[in-house]
């Protein structure tokens, strides 16, 4: 663990986690409404609809765990939770690209919202790497 008097936590990373949490909450609600819309208006096979909604719930779980561990790791200056968050960034980005490219019907709205999520993932990954590097370089001294 890093010394107590040094503050190594990254403020931009914390801001991103905070905004990502709010953005994700909005995204989740909107996506549920979009599935309602698509299920009512489009010829959506039941199996695909169930698959997409279950994937969305899984995505919610991944994202909540990722943001929780990321915030804890960043604020407590611990490498393990931050490492878990880095590892969970990849499934999270996979899910965003699934909803961007591979799901049954992709609306324009979804395309834009998922691109914003991917942008969040990328910038968080970059800042998490930098923060992890700072934490571990302070550990060696």
């Amino acid at each position: 663990m890093a010394p107590r008097d040094k503050r190594l936590s990254s403020t931009p990373l914390e801001v991103l986690f905070f905004l990502n949490g709010w953005y994700y909450a909005t995204y989740f609600l909107l996506e549920l409404l979009i599935f309602l819309y698509k299920g009512l208006l489009l010829p959506y096979p039941t199996a695909n609809l169930v698959l997409d909604v279950v994937m969305l719930l899984l995505y919610l779980g991944i994202e909540v765990i990722r943001l929780f561990f990321g915030t804890k790791g960043n604020l407590c200056q611990r490498k393990m939770p931050l490492g878990i968050s880095v590892a969970l960034t990849f499934p999270s980005a996979m899910m965003a690209s699934y909803y961007l490219l591979l799901q049954t019907y992709v609306l324009r709205l979804e395309a834009i919202m998922n691109s914003i999520l991917l942008f969040f993932c990328g910038s968080e990954l970059l800042l998490e790497m930098l923060t992890l590097a700072t934490f571990s370089s302070m550990d060696r001294i």
Binding site: F18, L19, W22, I116
Partner: peptide
Amino acid sequence: LVPSRFLTLLAHLV
């Protein structure tokens, strides 16, 4: 105000 401002900004952007 902070998250609501961010979300309205993003809504407009979308």
